[in-house]
């Protein structure tokens, strides 16, 4: 069992990150922290892809290097995904700013109270 976990250490880290991210998103009352949780969650996925691309003893996928190469495609994909993630974070933070401007709080429960009287 331990061996299995150790040999799959990247995957373990992936799911730890996913777990942490989810937990932060759900448990944190602060909106910014929720956004951070989302980021952690996404990072877990990035790691998952990169890990999947790894080949034991592989070289970077550059033609001048010797085979075996690690799989290049996940890297490309994750580059895209990171861009998407950044965009998402930006939009999310923009909203957080607006919420703060509107209600003067970032605390979820306070927010709920404030909005209850809306």
């Amino acid at each position: 069992m331990m061996d299995l976990l150790v040999s799959r250490d990247y995957y373990v880290a992936t799911f730890l990150l996913l777990g942490i991210g989810t937990y932060v998103m759900i448990a944190s009352r602060n909106l910014v922290k929720k956004v951070i949780g989302m980021n952690i969650f996404q990072t877990g996925i990035f790691l998952f892809f990169i890990a999947a691309a790894y080949v034991e003893g592989g070289n970077p996928p550059v033609l001048t290097m010797d085979a075996p190469h690690v799989s290049p495609l996940p890297h490309v994909l994750i580059l895209t995904a990171i861009v998407v993630g950044v965009a998402l974070t930006a939009v999310a933070l923009g909203m957080v700013v607006r919420i703060y401007a509107e209600y003067g709080t970032l605390d979820e429960e306070t927010l709920q109270e404030v909005r209850g009287s809306e």
Binding site: M38, Q42, A92, I99
Partner: peptide, 18 residues
């Protein structure tokens, strides 16, 4: 233009991203 939109959008964003 209301704060409500922003809150809804953020919630949408978080859940949608997941």
């Amino acid at each position: 233009d209301r704060g409500r939109s922003a809150v809804a959008a953020l919630k949408y964003l978080l859940v949608g991203t997941v």
